[in-house]
């Protein structure tokens, strides 16, 4: 079992012009991932199912693997949800079923599951949903249920909502422009929810992933109400395994590596 393997793409679905959902199946035995962990996927593919393709040896642009949160697991393999942002993700979007890619993972730490007497309060902003979906699914699978607060800029940035509905205890949606759900910030929605549900607030654990400012707002709310909170951080990285020291985030104990000590941190640990 290795964390470095070749995988076959079993599905690569375009959700809309900006987002896609990739499913890959390891060609050799791999390690079971936890919720919140991530994979680094090479932007080079052989084009059609040959792990020995010279492409892996001679194509150096794009160079580095790209990190993607584990979205969920299906019988077809591991899924990552991604936004087409640059050269690397554009190339990955165009990879077809049957193509073989280089994968490193699962990497980083996981969200700790909520204790039995606690309720999960999940907060996702934009593509942050990719990091928390599997956690919510695991919680649902173990008989619990998560209150999910999901915000995005506009309706087309809300992803996999129908799938989310099947695993959420409650699902509250907001958009910046009001095109779907409440108009406003997901963190305001979280604040309102906590004000109206004192029991959930008292026995809650917050799990959040999204833009930096959203995570900062979540950590302020958590601190004010004395709720335990975990956030998943994002930073540019090269190696993914703690060697290059490229992906650091400032914490109260100095810089920490997002790929190694993270991506999940206790919210109070981060210097915002």
């Amino acid at each position: 079992m290795s964390r470095y393997f070749k995988a076959e793409i079993t599905e690569n679905i375009s959700l809309n012009k900006d987002y896609s959902l990739l499913t890959f199946h390891p060609l050799t035995s791999s390690i079971d991932p936890g919720p919140g962990q991530f994979y680094m996927i090479g932007c080079v593919s052989d084009g059609g199912g040959s792990p020995e393709s010279p492409a892996f040896k001679y194509v150096y642009d794009p160079l580095l693997k790209r990190p993607f949160s584990l979205f969920r697991r299906t019988d077809k393999g591991f899924q990552v949800l991604y936004r087409i942002r640059g050269k690397g993700t554009a190339i990955i979007r165009d990879m077809r079923k049957g193509a073989v890619v280089d994968v490193l993972g699962p990497l980083g730490n996981s969200y700790p599951m909520p204790p039995e007497n606690k309720t999960a309060l999940v907060v996702a902003g934009g593509l942050g949903i990719a990091s928390v979906f599997y956690l919510a699914e695991k919680i649902a699978g173990s008989g619990g249920s998560a209150h999910i607060h999901y915000g995005a800029r506009t309706e087309t940035d809300l992803l996999m909502v129908e799938d989310l509905r099947t695993i959420a205890g409650t699902l509250n949606i907001s958009t910046d422009d009001g095109s779907c759900g409440e108009q406003g910030c997901v963190t305001d929605m979280l604040g309102d929810f906590l004000a109206q549900n004192q029991t959930a607030a008292a026995a809650g654990v917050i799990y959040a992933c999204g833009p930096h400012r959203m995570l900062e707002a979540v950590s302020v709310i958590a601190k004010e109400r004395g709720i335990e909170a975990y956030i998943s951080a994002e930073e540019r990285m090269a190696c993914g395994i703690g060697a290059c020291l490229g992906c650091v985030i400032k914490t109260v104990n100095g810089y920490k590596r997002v790929c190694k000590e993270g991506p999940v941190f206790r919210a109070e640990e981060i210097v915002w």
Binding site: Y60, L63, R236, G246, C247, K250
Partner: peptide, 13 residues
Amino acid sequence: PPRIIETPAGMLN
């Protein structure tokens, strides 16, 4: 941070 950025066939650190 950011401490790393990819450039064509290379990276800056």
